[in-house]
């Protein structure tokens, strides 16, 4: 009984457990899994990333030119990183950033 009274009083002056977002930023951890980024210059067009992607977030669209066009749907992506792990030119052609998708 006495213990709980002391506890409730100390709780009155304790620091708040929540973060006052948007005024205070939430600390992010390193290596957060965010958007997938791509560079067409380095890509060798093996289409491995398209094949392994579980929700088909990466699609190569056929174009008139030789190479197909990379299309990435951040709203379908589950950020599993499977595409990056399977890319033969990991970190050059395809890498995982810490960015968030835009809110439309």
């Amino acid at each position: 009984m006495i213990k709980s009274i002391i506890e409730s009083f100390s709780n009155l002056f304790a620091k708040s457990e929540t973060i006052n977002y948007p005024y205070e930023q939430i600390a992010k951890f390193k290596n957060y899994r965010g958007l997938i980024e791509y560079s067409a210059d380095e890509c060798i067009f093996c289409y491995k990333c398209e094949k392994v992607c579980p929700p088909d977030a990466i699609v190569f669209k056929p174009t008139k030119e030789k190479n197909r066009l990379y299309e990435y749907n951040p709203n379908l992506c589950i950020y599993c990183g499977e595409c990056v792990r399977n890319c033969p030119k990991e970190d050059l052609a395809l890498w995982q950033s810490e960015k968030k998708p835009k809110i439309i």
């Binding site: 951890f29 290596n31 899994r33 950020y79 990183g81």
Partner: peptide, 15 residues
Amino acid sequence: MDIQEAISGNRVQFD
């Protein structure tokens, strides 16, 4: 949850 997030890079779906 913080430990899991730091290890796996995501809060709920760890993959």
